[in-house]
Write a protein that binds this DNA or RNA. Structure first.
Length: 120
DNA sequence: CTCGTGACTCCCG
DNA sequence: TCGGGAGCCACGA
């Protein structure tokens, strides 16, 4: 479990790609992280899009909890019939709650800013 | 080296 | 509130 940014940067993983993998694996069950957050933790605040690319190509290979990654609004970015329903199902199973608009309350289920933060 | 590819975000009207 | 448009970026071909 990565506790802070320093620890993350000190890992063997050198590429953004590898760090993203680590970051995602570090998302605790019952919580969700946004693409932007993952990108931030991986060291590139602007590479949110890249995170999706990585997920798409390595989800199975690294057994990533991909369903815990949602967009900044707390929505599932996948399109219906393309994983959307599956993701929602998996999240609900972990206790995540969706509101009327199928949004997740990030205040409640999103990673707190300190989860990956330096000030434990 | 250049180009295509996104499960993203931010900003504006 | 909601939708469109532009910015952004690593990785593979």
């Amino acid at each position: 479990m990565i506790r802070n940014l320093s620890e993350l940067f000190e890992t063997e993983e050198k590429s953004f790609y590898q760090r993203v993998i680590r970051a995602i694996q570090d998302i605790p069950k019952g919580k969700v992280a946004t693409y932007g957050q993952v990108a931030l933790v991986a060291g590139n605040p602007r590479a949110a899009r890249q995170v999706s690319y990585i997920l798409h190509s390595s989800t199975e290979k690294y057994a990533l909890p991909w369903h815990r990654v949602v967009n900044s609004k707390g929505n599932i970015s996948l399109k219906p019939k393309k994983g959307y329903e599956l993701q929602m199902k998996l999240l609900k199973k972990e206790g995540i709650v969706f509101d009327k608009k199928n949004c997740i309350d990030l205040k409640k289920f999103g990673l707190s800013p300190n989860s990956f933060n330096i000030q434990d």
